[in-house]
Design a protein around this nucleic acid. Structure first.
Length: 1145
RNA sequence: AGAUCCGUAGCUCAGCCUGGUUAGAGCACUACACUGAUAAUGUAGGGGUCAGCAGUUCAAAUCUGCUCGGGUCUACCA
């Protein structure tokens, strides 16, 4: 390795420039590839790259999740693992289709008409990697190391073949099945809608619909007998609340007609009604009342909690209403004010009660129902927990075709299914006056008459409507046609994830979720409430479902490989006389539409089979990447085995039910394994005001600009340290600037400082490593702190807490290394000869810098490598080309000295206190003072302070420190309770004791200290206080200026004696001369001669400290002149004098 | 509607798990210092109903419940 003699020095901190240089260096040396290959033979650490879609531009939110992924991979590499990172691209799916349609100015309906499926898909394929260049660029510039030479691409035949294999495995296990599901459907557009489409802005609109409370007439039989009995006995009568009900009470039952009330906002679904659903634990009541439209007596059943929606119960507590309650008043005319409660019961009590069909026609006759669903038992009361008492009547009109819940409960009770609306959105034939009418105005008819109103009117007339009104609610609309969506039964293929739900829950518990709550809460709940995975998509650009079946649907096959397809096609060719094989050669093969749809296969009985038209959910594509990226099981079996499951994945929290779920589901289903052991879900990146970034708001941050302007490292450091990855990040450019200035600026300064003096002294770590124990206190201290930091950073990184790791490092660099170690040690670097102490200082600072570069390498890969390489170029301590090829620092526990770190904290606090006192009395630091007094509360405290005494004296410029022993009576003390200890002991007496302690005199405190305990009577009972029960600290030293922080108190003797003043003058003078040296552009080592014209007092001061002055300013001579006309005038403590500083030689 | 995260100084965040009496830091602002690291640094100052309410406790930013506000995901259902 080429060695440099000198450390490289820079003219300024320009992070982007650094980075370009480092990038070129990486490319040239193939640093990434080497970082992987250097770990050949070591334990692999498996990482999965969640494939981004390259049909859109990368945003700043991609930078954060990729930073997270990158830093973990870099860290693990430095920890000795081999971390391969195969990249990938997600290439299928709706966003791509939509993008293409927008570009071509077409809609879905035009596919197959204006443009062939073939052309359309070719366009999609083209669009898919449109921004790949931009992605590659951001990947490179942000320093994300991922292997993009051989990425997996989801549209490739090999990739799809693995998907087919997985699907065929599922099929073999009986986990892939076809069924009807209720999906959002747009009759106007003639297509099903995905949840994504339904979540487009503006699809949910507030609309006013005609809603009806329909009356379903109960049939008297064994199940419902108790209701009719209650009508005959008219309830148990005596719980009357309101008078004037004699009439009601005396009358015989006027009718036995009994109705279940059920509310709907879509009356058009009523002809398809097959059931009524009640909640098992909801309280229902049977009420005698009358029909508000026809004024005929009726009995109705509804949820008790919803009585007041229909009945005038002003000021009456519903819960107090019991059977027998009667009311006949006229308070609110809008509601019914005449009722009697005849019975009360739970929903489960009326399970199975039958009722008459509400709107019987030819098309929905029992005969038709039986034909559609043999054995179906419709028109019954069902029980399910989805029913609430939020709205309506607590009884849900159930039309299985038009609601997911309805479908589910209908299936449970086998009530059959009626779909009285066709795909155009109009009623089918055989529904009397409603036949062929559109259920919503789908065709923009000018004189459209709302069929829902007509249905309601009919119900009213027939004593089948209890209440009809306009109801405003939010309802989804098709984002393309703006027409209301309806939920409609469509054929779809499902994966039976519910079959292994328990196993998925169980395996999830073994996954390390960051943060934990996402795994337990969001993901855990999602698993608990899982439904089967609806795989089908009616689209064009995606992975085709590999199922072929005969026209009669009797025979079907699920193809699991290309070879199987070829064999099947050959067989079909032979028997059916086709020539398909040419479409299936390696060159011509394309497993997309329309090509695969053209392949005809042969059924076992010799019939042709066609592929079912569905594509599969793109989430299956990405969830299958652990297998498909290797083309498993068709090749690379070893690669797969070594890379499953993943040790670590990371994506945005929005992927919880996306990628995280599909990975988990497929792995559980087919491999009975988790797909990943640790998953980090990061939060969103918001703008600085906390708004979501969106193109519409124009608050999107361009990651290219950010990185070019501030550098990738500053951006990465900011993203990681500002907030935990899983918290949302309010992205503010100012924050990056701060990181740049504060963290990188400081580190850069520290390096520059080191390089400057090392180059002067020729330090190259050639000397033997000086044992830490032989180094000065402050060196041992910074090395102890450094190792403490190393220890913590390792712990945090192992725990996937990079934010904490970064903050610890940041704190060390700013507070300890720069603001204390370097500041206090500056003289050691530029004073004196190149001997032991100086070498100690160089070795110590070097070790700090070198260790820090390795610690920050995962988070800030560029700057760390630049500094590391510059250091290593001179010393050659590592045989490595890059910081990313070396090992991560491991803490040397033997160097960690907690007492030392503690006393240095004392020194820092003491110095800070003295400086603040100096400030208070306006004495500058350059003016020496004689003495500082510190009360030592214990022997150990005194010992601790003595060890750092010299540092404090130098830092605050005082001559001596004097300690006051604990038993002196000179200082006044204060006492306060040790709450933790006393609270446990005293409990409720705490307050009294606390108050008593506040009243303690100096004598009381002294007594307690002397005796070791104190008898304090509280409420007549004695309380014995031990010294450990209280905290005593010094407060004041009479006659001194004091300051304190915690238990540390310092006092300063502010008397300036003539000697001190003279020394102050001398130091002030040195300072001025140094400034002149610097201003004159002298080198650090230049020797000078000095001429001074000073007056009496000042002259004496300077003469007295002549040796000191000459040593400080590297002067060979200091001569006093009477007058120097052309000298430089300087001001020493308000005295003006002239000097001349001449460079020698 | 459900789940989940978040709410502490003008801004960005610690502290909360494990309750303890003056609630911290950085940035920004103001003033004063310092100066062979200088696009730095120190000291001091102002700035807080710890979102709100209730509870548990001798003691609550911290534990519990509810409410409000913001984000995300899921759902939208009579």
């Amino acid at each position: 390795m080429a060695m440099n003699a000198k450390y490289r020095e820079f003219t300024g901190l320009n992070l982007p420039a650094f980075e370009q240089e480092v990038l070129a260096n990486w490319t040239e040396k193939q640093a990434f590839e080497k970082s992987v290959s250097l770990r050949d033979g070591t334990v692999p650490f498996v990482f999965y790259e969640g494939p981004p879609s390259a049909n859109g531009m990368p945003g700043i939110h991609h930078v954060i999740s990729r930073t997270l992924k990158d830093l973990v991979c870099r860290y693990k590499t430095m920890k000795g693992f081999q971390v391969k990172r195969k990249g990938g691209w997600d290439t299928h799916g709706l966003p791509i289709e939509l993008g293409v349609e927008k570009e071509l100015g077409i809609t879905k309906e035009d596919i197959g008409k204006k443009i062939s499926v073939e052309e359309y898909n070719a366009k999609c394929r083209e669009a898919v990697l449109r921004y790949k260049d931009k992605w590659d660029e951001i990947t490179k510039k942000m320093g994300y190391w991922v292997d993009l030479n051989d990425p997996y691409i989801t549209f490739k035949n090999d990739y799809i073949e693995t998907l087919w294999w997985l699907l065929s495995e599922l099929y073999k296990k009986g986990l892939l099945y076809e069924s009807v599901s209720i999906q959002p459907y747009s009759p106007a557009a003639g297509t099903g809608l995905s949840s994504h489409e339904l979540n487009q802005p503006g699809t949910y609109k507030d609309v006013k619909d005609t809603s009806a409370v329909a009356m379903f007439k109960a049939i008297r039989n064994a199940k419902s007998e108790f209701l009719f009995k209650a009508i005959e006995t008219r309830g148990s009568s005596d719980n009357t609340q309101i008078s004037n009900v004699q009439q009601l009470l005396d009358a015989k039952p006027q009718t036995s007609d009994t109705f279940f009330l059920a509310w709907t906002t879509t009356p058009w679904t009523l002809p398809s009604n097959l059931g009524l659903t009640v909640g098992p634990n909801i309280d229902y009541v049977l009420v005698e009342t009358y029909n508000p439209y026809l004024h005929v007596p009726i009995n109705v059943v509804l949820a008790k909690q919803l009585l007041n929606k229909y009945f005038d119960l002003t000021d009456i507590d519903i819960n107090s209403i019991k059977t027998g309650f009667a009311l006949d008043s006229h308070i609110d005319t809008k509601k019914i004010s005449k009722l009697k409660i005849l019975a009360e019961f739970k929903g489960s009590d009326i399970e199975g009660c039958e009722y008459e069909q509400l709107l019987p026609y030819e098309a929905n006759s029992p005969k038709v129902i039986e034909e559609l669903t043999p054995g179906a038992k419709p028109f019954r009361v069902l029980v399910d927990s989805f029913v609430t008492t939020e709205d309506g009547t607590g009884i849900v009109h159930t039309a299985p075709a038009f609601g997911a819940d309805d479908f589910k409960v209908g299936k449970k009770y086998n009530i059959g299914i009626l779909t009285m609306v066709d795909r155009q959105g109009k009623f089918v034939d055989g529904l009397g006056e409603f036949s062929n009418r559109y259920v919503k105005n789908y065709k923009d008819e000018k004189d459209y008459v709302d069929v829902n109103v007509d249905i309601s009117v009919k119900l009213k007339k027939e004593n089948r409507a209890f209440k009809v009104e306009k109801y405003e609610h939010s309802y989804p609309h098709c984002w393309r046609t703006d027409k209301p969506v309806l939920y409609y039964p469509l054929d779809a293929w499902f994966i039976k994830t519910t079959a292994i739900k328990d196993r998925m829950v169980e395996l999830n518990k073994t996954i390390n979720w960051k943060p934990k709550s996402t795994g337990e809460g969001r993901f855990g709940n999602w698993l608990e409430n899982m439904v089967d995975w609806n795989l089908s998509r009616s689209r064009y650009w995606g992975t085709p479902l590999p199922i072929w079946r005969t026209d009669d649907g009797e025979e079907e096959v699920c193809i699991g490989s290309v070879e199987e397809l070829r064999a099947g096609a050959r067989k079909a060719d032979e028997v059916l006389g086709l020539a398909q094989s040419s479409k299936l050669t390696a060159d011509s093969l394309d497993l997309h539409k329309p090509y695969v749809d053209e392949i005809i296969l042969l059924s076992p009985s010799g019939k042709p089979m066609k592929r079912v038209p569905d594509l599969i959910d793109v989430w299956f594509d990405s969830g299958a990447m652990p297998y498909a990226q290797w083309h498993y099981p068709f090749g690379n079996k070893e690669d797969f085995k070594n890379a499953f499951p993943a040790d670590f994945i990371a994506e945005g929290v929005d992927q919880t039910r996306g990628w995280f779920y599909t990975l988990h589901a497929i792995a559980c289903l087919l491999f009975d394994s988790v797909a990943y052991k640790t998953v980090v879900s990061n939060g969103l990146v918001l703008d600085k005001n906390g708004n979501k970034m969106s193109k519409r708001l124009g608050n999107v941050v361009n990651p290219f600009e950010t990185i070019e302007k501030f550098g990738a490292d500053a951006t990465r450091w900011y993203l990681i340290t500002n907030a935990s990855p899983w918290d949302n990040l309010k992205f503010d450019i100012e924050g990056i600037k701060e990181v740049q200035r504060k963290f990188f600026g400081t580190l850069y300064n520290t390096y520059q400082f080191f390089a400057l003096y090392s180059n002067v002294d020729g330090f190259a770590f050639k000397e033997a490593y000086i044992p830490v124990s032989e180094r000065p206190e402050i060196d041992r201290w910074i090395l102890s702190s450094l190792n403490t930091v190393v220890k913590k950073v390792n712990e945090y990184m192992d725990d996937y807490e990079p934010t904490q790791a970064g903050r610890v490092i940041e704190d060390f660099v700013d507070e300890h290394l720069s603001n204390w170690y370097v500041r206090l040690c500056r003289r050691r670097f530029w004073k004196g000869e190149y001997e032991q102490d100086k070498i100690c200082a160089y070795q110590t600072l070097y070790e700090c810098l070198e260790t820090i570069t390795r610690l920050i390498a995962p988070i800030s890969p560029f700057f760390s490598d630049a500094v590391f390489q510059n250091l290593n170029a001179v010393t050659g301590r590592f045989n490595a080309e890059s910081v990313h090829h070396v090992d991560f620092p491991v803490a040397n526990e033997s160097v960690i000295d907690e007492l030392l770190e503690e006393r240095m904290q004392l020194a820092q606090d003491a110095s800070s206190l003295v400086l603040s006192l100096r400030k208070k009395v306006n004495i500058k630091v350059r003016q020496p003072l004689q003495k500082v007094l510190i009360p030592a509360l214990s022997a150990s405290m005194k010992e601790q302070l003595q060890k750092v005494e010299d540092l404090v004296k130098a830092e605050v410029n005082v001559k001596e420190i004097e300690y006051l022993s604990p038993d002196n009576t000179f200082i006044s003390k204060k006492i306060k309770p040790n709450f933790v200890a006393l609270g446990k002991k005293l409990g409720p007496k705490m307050k009294a004791v606390s108050a008593a302690l506040a009243q303690f005199t100096q004598e009381d405190i002294a007594l307690l200290e002397k005796e070791g305990q104190y008898n304090l009577p509280v409420d007549g009972e004695p309380v014995i206080l031990q010294t450990t029960d209280v905290e005593i600290s010094s407060e004041d030293i009479p006659g001194w200026t004091v300051a304190n922080k915690g238990s540390l108190t310092v006092a300063v003797d502010v008397t300036i004696t003539p000697e001190l003043e003279a020394e102050g003058n001398a130091r002030e003078f040195v300072n001025r001369i140094q400034k002149i040296r610097k201003d004159s552009g002298f080198e650090l080592t230049d020797r000078v001669s000095l001429k001074v014209a000073a007056a009496n007092g000042m002259k004496d001061s300077l003469a007295q400290f002549k040796d000191y002055i000459c040593a400080e300013i590297l002067a060979d001579s200091l001569d006093f002149e009477a007058e120097i006309p052309d000298g430089i005038q300087i001001d020493i403590n308000d005295v003006l004098l002239n000097v001349i500083v001449l460079k020698k030689g």
